[in-house]
């Protein structure tokens, strides 16, 4: 059968196109514009070509931020995914405990990000912070303002506190969708607790887990607010992740050209990773 071509359809998508143009495409183009020019203010621009990109790709500062960010993402995934699964497995499946657990789990997700930062900034202080004071009182030298390791530990624990719930809720949704008959059959078949997890629960959670990993990776790769509030990227540059570095370049130093080039590269990385995840997910669906 021949396809019917109807150009009227364009009018129907037009509003969306206009909206996206104003909210995304045009701002992005100004960034592209900045990235290939140099300016000293007064709206005077000089053509710079690929200079900013080359400079950035040879800059240690950029690669250090990138490596820090990847390590951070890796650590929080390594903690949040297993921990999230573990908590979801142990959450009640029925009764009054269900709403209680769900609300408790959702709470950290509802706190605004800069508030999360402020909470931990205060919580970890060793003069007035509940955590910082008592950890030091126990004889452990903890000071996130001066010690890079302590700063990392604080930022990671904060992220785990803030975002593990998301993994829990997604896994829990996957778990409750498993019909009772599967558990009954597993009992009949003499399956161990581990076998039930490995052959029933994990396969049923696979899809939501993939989404959880995608979301958590993207979020942690773009993390800005919370570490900015707690450590401001320090001590030194030890918790300066890509987005913090970007803001420092763009707004701190007002280097619009390099910052624009960095934005674009950052954007391309996110785009590439999204595409990889999308492909993996759709392939997985097609296989079923």
């Amino acid at each position: 059968m021949d396809k019917t071509w109807n150009n009227k359809a364009w009018f129907l998508v037009l509003p969306v196109l206009v909206l996206v143009a104003f909210s995304a495409v045009i701002p992005l183009m100004t960034v592209v514009n900045y990235s290939v020019q140099d300016t000293f203010g007064n709206n005077v621009f000089f053509w710079a070509g690929t200079e900013w990109f080359e400079e950035l790709l040879h800059s240690d500062r950029f690669w250090e931020a990138m490596v820090r960010n990847l390590i951070f993402s890796f650590i929080i995934l390594a903690i949040q995914v297993p921990l999230g699964i573990f908590i979801a497995l142990n959450m009640p499946k029925k009764g009054w405990g269900v709403p209680v657990c769900l609300v408790l789990m959702a709470l950290p997700l509802l706190v605004p990000w800069n508030v999360v930062g402020t909470i931990w900034q205060v919580f970890g202080r060793n003069d007035i912070g509940l955590l910082g004071y008592y950890v030091n009182a126990l004889g452990i030298d903890y000071n996130y303002v001066q010690d890079p390791i302590d700063a990392w530990v604080t930022v990671i624990i904060m992220d785990v506190w803030h975002w593990t719930s998301l993994v829990v809720l997604l896994c829990y949704a996957g778990l409750v969708s498993i019909p009772d008959a599967f558990y009954q059959a597993a009992k009949i078949d003499g399956a161990s607790r581990w076998a039930v997890f490995r052959y029933i629960q994990l396969p049923k959670m696979q899809r939501v887990l993939l989404i959880a990993v995608l979301l958590r990776f993207m979020d942690s790769f773009m993390i800005y607010t919370e570490p900015f509030v707690v450590t401001g990227g320090g001590p030194g540059n030890s918790t300066t992740f890509l987005s913090i570095d970007l803001v420092k370049t763009a707004l701190g130093q007002f280097d619009l050209g390099p910052a624009a080039a960095m934005s674009l590269i950052y954007f391309l990385i996110i785009l590439l990773l999204s595409w990889v995840f999308y492909t993996v997910m759709t392939n997985y669906d097609a296989e079923r």
Partner: peptide, 19 residues
């Protein structure tokens, strides 16, 4: 427990191990 009773049971709707 079910395991100790050593019983086989087949359910109304198919239960298979997907993977």
């Amino acid at each position: 427990s079910t395991q100790e009773r050593n019983i086989a049971q087949v359910f109304q709707f198919p239960v298979i191990y997907d993977t």
